[in-house]
Write a protein that binds this DNA or RNA. Sequence first.
RNA 1: GGACCUGUGGUGCAGUUUGGAGUGCACGCCGGCCUGUCAAGCCGGAGGUCGCGGGUUCAAAUCCCGUCAGGUCCGCCA
Length: 587
Amino acid sequence: MTDVSSSTSLRTHRCGDLRVADVGSTVTVCGWVAKRREHGEHLAFVDLRDHTGLIQCVVPGSVDVRSEYVVSVTGVVRLRPEGTENSDLATGAVEVGECAVEILNIAEPPPFPVDDRGDVDEVIRLRHRFVDLRRPRMQANLRLRAKVNSALRSAMDRQGFVEVETPLLWAPTPEGAREFAVPSRLSRGSCYVLPQSPQLAKQLLMVGGVDRYYQIARCLRDEDLRADRQFEFTQLDIEASFVTQEDVLSFVTEAVLDAAEAATGERPAGVARMTWAEAIDRYGSDKPDIRFGMELIDLSGVFAGTEVKAFASPCVKAIVVEGGASLSRSRLDAHTERAKSLGAKGLAWFRVTANETDGGLALDSPLDRFLSDDERAGLLATTKATSGDLVLVVADEHRLACSVLGQLRLDIGGRPVSEGPYRYLWVVDFPMFDGVDDHGHPVAAHHPFTMPNPEDLDLLETDPASVRSQAYDLVLNGWELGSGSVRIHRSDIQSRVFAALGISDEEAAARFGFLLGAFRFGAPPHAGFAVGIDRLVAIFAGEDSIREVIAFPKTQSGSDPMTGAPKPLEPGQLAALGLQPVPQKLD
RNA sequence: GGACCUGUGGUGCAGUUUGGAGUGCACGCCGGCCUGUCAAGCCGGAGGUCGCGGGUUCAAAUCCCGUCAGGUCCGCCA
């Protein structure tokens, strides 16, 4: 493989590129000493590593290099002697012989092994991230990420999108995620905020006639961190004019499938689709992992009018754990505790066993003696559970019963997100509102600029909870990869939505005045989406944490073990910004 | 704000349940030997605030309380 970047003024080849075809060539390779093996004063091996891999260099004498020394090695590529080939190395058929070694820089012993064998404590890796990044795993992850970015850009370019950069210093728009504030030096006491996303900016670009915008955009949210969440993350941000939801789904599908193909070498067959209501009902989640079954089963009919107090609820749902009858009582208790911590009043379990006398099925459960014969038969028939299975039942309000069982389904049957196969899913028809705030007003499920489903417009004033929106999520293996919506471009509809949200005209003007003002000057119909690139790359890389695909991530408490951030500012810096620390409250 | 898990030479672990000398394993590191190794091999050596603080005890890596750091999760993430 030829590559214009492989040779430089200091090297002729990259370590991992040397092959039998190079035999006879005099080469110079540069890199880090991965290993030195001395065999007395007449022979030494130096394994040299760069980002492409390892090459064995043979030195006719002893050589005073240590692990991670930076060296330049010049020698002649030759076949390895018969029987000494190393099939574990891509370069294992050859070696660089008669080597002269020039030390470019010495190095202290690394704080941990610079290879992919074994795990190292993450805080130690992060403290020495510059060493960690030399490991093949991290090199592969960074390069995979670049490849995904490139595929996404190319897909958007091809589809007529134009890349536009938007400000990092934006105005506070209190709504949704907590924002990072940046104090202004020139305007003391005032702050910019770092964008949670370029949401408003990209809508303004639509008003500005950009037509199709995209950006690989950094987003910042001051919320608690998780395996799939960092303060800073990166989205493929998209907005387009004169489009419908279907157009957006098509744009994003194209980009994501291109990225998948670039990353994995295989183009996914497509993206499944499901309504939000179906996702909740069948999987108890708005981001269902559809790699496995164990779907929620509705037993409300079976227990309608039941005498069993625990099941006297609007909704009775169940999951079947195949072979789960062998779970110990302590495991079942743990699941019950988990269900309670998720808000359920309790968890009923039924072990399904073979009835020894007639060969039929029997239930083993503390609740069994309270069940009528019809309920017992109905439970078995509806769940299709068989001998050796375990049936877990939650009775509650519909949403709660679904979400609790959905979580138990993942606890019991879930697999790491990065484990194949990749199952992409569009979740569509999200509700417009989700829950109510302290004042009893509905809360926007997506954001307040989301267009309601036209069929449900007239429910805005009468039954807001049942209004569907034109909002949609992309889900992969149970992770939310991104979300988007058709936006409201007409002020009459926007006013009705603000009214439903309990946002007054004055409040709306104060928060989003610049956007609403802009919309008076000719806002086209528009819609958009944003894909979480960290999550996408992590899954492609086989990683279960996005930290593994970010060069310099933060810990769960938001610190950086390498730089020590966050740190107090010098008094002078504080003064220049007009800031004064407030002493910590003592409890 | 909350739940759970983890913290032992540079690295990864065992030891903690049932208190008894910083005991052990692998890697790395330092020195010596070694002409075909590749997780090289052989010989020798150095390296410890058992995260930190307090308590119980004749005695604490081990039990108790607190605290710090890291992780997973709930809340939070329009």
